[in-house]
């Protein structure tokens, strides 16, 4: 099972991060990604393959104080 932002993402396994981000509709320039507590830099989205058991956070900036 793959967990992305706390939710099961059953179809993500096997995709690269770049593919997942594009399919899901995120703007890659406006997010930061952490896979299994490791930050994945944008240049590595293409070569990072999502595997069963991965826990991924896709984050962005929002208003805050």
């Amino acid at each position: 099972m793959v967990v992305i932002n706390g939710e099961n993402a059953e179809n993500a396994s096997g995709l690269t991060l770049a593919q997942y981000i594009k399919n899901a509709g995120y703007n890659a320039e406006r997010i930061v990604v952490e896979k299994n507590l490791e930050i994945i830099c944008r240049a590595d989205y293409d070569k990072t393959v999502i595997s069963d058991g991965d826990s991924i956070e896709i984050l962005n900036f929002v208003g805050g104080g």
Partner: peptide, 18 residues
């Protein structure tokens, strides 16, 4: 300007950085 970091969602079309 201060900002916070939170989980992204694809429904949200506006990004504060813009």
């Amino acid at each position: 300007i201060t900002l916070a970091l939170r989980r992204a969602n694809t429904e949200q079309t506006e990004n504060i950085l813009d």
